[in-house]
Design a protein around this nucleic acid. Sequence first.
DNA 1: TCATACCGGGG
DNA 2: GTGTACGGTATGA
Length: 800
Amino acid sequence: MTSIEDEWLWGWDATPGIVSVWAENARAIVWRRTADTGVLVREEERFRPWLLLDRLDDLLHLGAAVGRDGDPDAQVTHRELDGGGALRYLVSARNSQLLINTVLKGATQRLGRHIRHVRELDEDGILMLQPEEQYLVASGRCYFRDLSFDDLHRLQFDLETTGLDPAHDRIFMVSVRGPDGGSQVLEAHGTDDAAEADLIRRLVAVIQSADPDVIENHNLHGFDLPFLDRRARKLRVPLALGRFGPPGLRQRGARRGIALGDGDSRRRVRFMAPGRELIDTLDAVRRYDQTTRELPGHGLKAVAKYLGIARPEREYIRGDLIYHVYRSDPERVRRYATDDVDEVAALARMLGGPSFALAQMAPRRYERLADAGAATGVIDPLLVRAYLRSGTALPAHESSDGTPHSGAALHLFAAGVAHRVVKADVASLYPSLMRAYRIGPERDTLGALLSLVDRWVEQRLVAKAKARIAAPGSPERHSHEAMSAAMKLVVNSAYGYLAAGGDLTRFADVHAANEVTRRGREVLDLMCRELAARGVTLIEADTDGVYFAVPIAWTEADERRAVAEVAALLPPLVQLELEGRYAAMLSHEPKNYALLGYDGTLLLRGVAFRSSRAEPFGEKFLRRAIGRLLIDDVVGVHEVYLTTVSALRHRDISTHDVSSRVRLTKTPEQYLESRERRRELPYEAMFAAGRKSWSVGDRIRVYRNSAGEGALVLEADDDGESAQMDPRNYDIEHYIRLLRDSFAVRLARAFTQEDFAAVFADPDQPSLFQPPISDIHTVLTALPHHRTAGDVHDDPGDPG
DNA sequence: TCATACCGGGG
DNA sequence: GTGTACGGTATGA
């Protein structure tokens, strides 16, 4: 009762419980866990290594040892696939050594130069997957069938080190959380090589004894594994973290891996431990934030806090102080390290679902799917499996014919303050257009991508429905939500797959991608026209959504009716929804606006309104002023301005609030070299504070003091004992100028030029000709030729 | 000033 | 034997 499309989606082999696969030559080692008993079994499977070629020429030198599939005398066999794709020959052999050597030898003869490696061959003429993927594609198996996330045996470990550089710094502590949820802290008994080596040995023993399927940490691949690998090599400790083979971590090339060795080689790698899956929660966080874009940062502490999984009494220690604190208060560092692994475990469960679910579909290892980009990392392997299952030849990669890729529409119709604002948008516009108009890659003769997108959309609805029925917090709920999120991920990546530049994806098709965006612009324009025809004032339209203001007499029902009417005019499958209602909006520039909700919440969007380096007093001013502005309290705006100026004058604002957070990007040596030519505030501030050494990347807070010199703000936990330094000796006039020229100008669109000048006039030089502030009202200005991303320039002229 | 190069994270 | 996120900031012409 399974169709071929089902097989494209899930594979076809029902073997349950696979938690890891390792393949070499013609042998795949498969670790499986039984859901109800938790028992782990290890199985050895034989499989026939295979690859795809565009020609058989390179096999002919074998003579009688090569033949069609089924030829009893042949060591290397081949089968011709259907269709016109370039990769028409499915070639296989008893073991991969024979297979590869045959091809390399043939290519060497054909090309007249020595070919040592498959990667030296024209990539359009061959497709050879990693051994595990060959096995999974050929067998139709996938990870985790009939398993839920909580069935996995997961272990988290976190290194505490004396610094970030494994060439000099040491591991002095490791916190470990086992599959049973219990945690322990391992410590070095001493500060020498022997003590650190002993610590690493104990860590390895703990991991071997816990025997987890999955090892997790935050930035595991970017910090802990490379650090551990380096220290273990240096100290000659065998790092036997896997379930198979000799000790030592294996490497795989990975774009987002680390650059190994001190050479400038481009090669970046990630580590592997055969039999276990090494999962970095940082990848899950990035994947999550890619769609939500709501996280304040991607660090463990920030994310855990934001997602509500940090204990209230959780221990925090600034990174560069950890070893320092350890020497005086080791117990505090033990708590800190334990909190880290607990948070990682919770975070992995909370955000790791999509990767877990992807591994139930795609023929790749779980750890690969966890760090893969969705287009090349997930969709491509699914398409390869679909074509092979159908016995159809795959097309070669095709580089673009030079057609430029055209993007989405972005219109700014009006700037200033609008009231009664509605946001209407289309969920998943691009995949909906692909489905509605059957826009797929031209070379996809099977129509596999569109078929998959259709099925993903269906399966997502199924998963969502099942998740709703399941008990909150239950493994079932987690599984269904994970599946739904995974489906959303692949659906939303289908367009990116088409549009992938270069020849990244096998079926990339700029023409199809451009057709999607063209339809998208058409839909957006239609939405705008039809909404405007119903009497609304358009403000901003971007890709798949529109902000508009409705007439004063409209009720919420009128708003919904207008959106519904327009929705009915859109193409099938394109669903327009009322996404949000707001009391008011300050439209500043494309993608830069403020929204005031009917519940009073103020939302600021875009660089103009939120930037990590902005001085806190300026941000606070902006929030307060915009809050008044959006209820048309211009007098209030004026007062906020005057209050802020006065607070600066009286030094009522703290030093911290006028300071700016910056990253040091030069070493002390580099700065000293350029210092004579150009003095830079942050470094001068470091020197002035008597700090002569720092590391590139360190973040500090600096401000300008009344002598016009850079000065440092010491933050509370720089030093356990002393309170925050707050001398309030900042350069008042400088910060008043900054207030007006950098912050107040962001309200300029809300006023006429004269009114803006009046509201933000220098309080010390009142003009006789100013209109009374109470007569001033905000404005919304229609932009005649609405401005798009390409032709946005500056704010209106300097008020003053 | 504008374009491009780089970063995010970890102790 | 991998992959083109994306939006901000730092830098160099």
